[in-house]
Nucleic acid binder design. Structure first.
Lengths: 336, 336
DNA sequence: GATTTTTGCTTAATCGTTTAATTTAAAATT
DNA sequence: AATTTTAAATTAAACGATTAAGCAAAAATC
């Protein structure tokens, strides 16, 4: 790698100190009253030598890297891919770069990702926390590292967060099904103590109870690492026997997709034999033969707010901010 | 941010020089023959103070950041999201972190992304180059920055690359359609001089010619920034009139999706009125009422190979490597 | 016992910036 | 003409690690 040009190279060429070059390169020629001709000479030399500042050196000196760490469950999941995209754009508008990592909902993986990003001195974190990482988050807080949780948070740890009103979302979805006349409504959720999942389940339960359908409640829980097989078992259970359900709510986009594969396999008639509400938008929902009614999350807002809140913290704000966004129920044919 | 512990803090606590601490922290206590008791003391102090090395400082000194720059067209596109995921995993296995950016197929955006990542001293680049960025790539090469192009490359610039055998893929797809008895086969591609697109088009053209269907060739080009509307116009054109086609090949996953929305809107009967072959896998292809036959790319291999080739370069290899991977034609119902 | 070798450690430069403190010279004020 | 102010530059320390070179004391060799 042919040595890159540094401040020193320019300084030598123009025969001034590196300080002057640094001032000019940072547009401080006025405050630091650098002579006009010198400014020009420095500018010319910089252009000629194609100078590009070494951000690493600057970071070391300034103690800030202008880098954000983003940890999601899986960047290949469209929901997180889309969030990442919004975050990237917002961050870049403010001069920040994003380093990302996927935790696979695994606390160990998330721990090492956090460590790696800390070592790289990110200025702050946007984290979709995995289950059982509350202590990790607490530790970050104690280190006073700016932080915002997205999609989920921990009740026991006071942090900034940007999430969906998950309770409201599923409550609304179930109410919609009930209005449409469905009573035997089931739900497939991830087996997880994470608050977003708990709240989605609670929305289902309370909506059922509020309509005196408490005894019809049927929740099946699926393991993240076995989503396909567990969902299949769950679906078989829910649509068989004399207690079989007539409508179903899925708790995430991945679960919805897994569920649709089962529906296809079982050749269920939608919505006649089974009404469906999915979670998050997805092109697959549009092309399913009976286009899915689904709970749409405001991904754009979520990403933007996350960056905004994080940058506030980085810039020294000490107040803790909680943002809870509203869903939108997109009604289509899968609910009759 | 309560000051983090540095080598110096440990050195002071144990009352040795920072050099010794550095040696121990890097497992060089043998070569540098550090005393046994001192090693233990340093280890203990490091643990007690929860020392985590400052990767920025190390990078500055070592001249290597253990960071890879990844530039794709759009991280929210599942194809690139999946590639990114594979790259992330492979890189992390080798102790590398990934910084990413989305170019939106725009040469200007790509240029600034490259600059930003250079300033951050990434050790190398994996780039899905946008149209008209051959000079940018050439400039990177001249700076001797390790580099591998993925998905596409430039004929005029000799670089490492990892791509699909795009010609073979579409040639195969068209041959398949012809075997199935289709003759009036059209194609919708992006209007782009990029080689992957050119090759996909060439595969179509040559397969048609090889079967004496040269006069049936109908290619419609779509602008990346107007994919939905342009695709709609193109589809209307292709399926109308007396020269209407009976089968169609889409050149990418986004085009396939756009096309499917039109098919839906036009209520075309697949495959009776129109046979379809899509590009890349996608859950939407599975749930389309007539599951799509499609050209599957070996994403996993593509990502892995890209990282492997790049790390080779970073480790000093001077040979240029070209990898061309094979597709797989997944046959389903959309071709009858 | 003198010399050489080994062991165990320290010193200090370096990476490329930033920036507070200082210096020098010229201009303005008295 | 002496003093003060302003302008325009330099110097050098700092960020936190790495690492070549050097040095002293202990151990081994003769």
């Amino acid at each position: 790698m042919s040595k890159r040009t540094s401040l020193k190279d320019i300084a030598e060429k123009v025969k001034v100190s590196t300080a002057l070059v640094s001032y000019v390169m940072n547009g401080q020629e006025k405050e630091k009253r650098v002579g006009k001709e010198v400014v020009k000479k420095i500018r010319d030399a910089a252009a000629e030598l194609n100078y590009q500042p070494n951000q690493i050196a600057r970071s070391l000196r300034k103690g800030s890297t202008k880098t954000l760490g983003l940890i999601v469950a899986d960047i290949a999941n469209p929901f997180f891919g889309n969030i990442a995209r919004v975050i990237e754009d917002e961050a870049s508008k403010q001069g920040y770069t994003v380093i990302f990592g996927s935790s696979d909902e695994d606390s160990g993986k998330m721990g090492s990702l956090v460590d790696i990003l800390i070592n790289r001195q990110v200025d702050g974190f946007i984290i979709v926390p995995a289950e059982g990482t509350d202590l990790q988050i607490k530790a970050l807080q104690e280190k006073k590292i700016p932080l915002v949780l997205t999609d989920r948070y921990f009740r026991e740890v006071t942090t900034n967060y940007v999430v969906l009103d998950n309770f409201g979302a599923t409550y609304d979805a179930i109410s919609h099904l009930i209005e449409k006349g469905f009573k035997k409504i089931g739900m497939i959720a991830y087996k997880s103590a994470l608050i977003h999942m708990q709240e989605r389940v609670r929305g289902y339960v309370e909506a059922m109870n509020a309509n005196n359908l408490g005894n019809e409640i049927r929740i099946e829980e699926v393991r993240y690492n076995h989503k396909r097989s567990d969902t299949e078992k769950a679906m078989n259970k829910l649509v068989a026997g004399d207690k079989k359900i007539s409508a179903i709510l899925f708790a995430t986009n991945t679960l919805t997709i897994s569920g649709l594969y089962c529906v296809k396999k079982l050749s269920l008639k939608i919505p006649e034999e089974l009404a469906i509400i999915g979670f998050d938008g997805n092109e697959a929902f549009d092309f399913f033969y009976s286009p899915l009614t689904y709970i749409e999350q405001p991904i754009e807002e979520m990403g933007k707010e996350s960056v905004r809140v994080l940058l506030d913290q980085i810039q020294g704000s000490t107040k803790t901010i909680h943002v809870e966004l509203r869903h939108q129920l997109i009604q289509r044919e899968s609910c009759g």
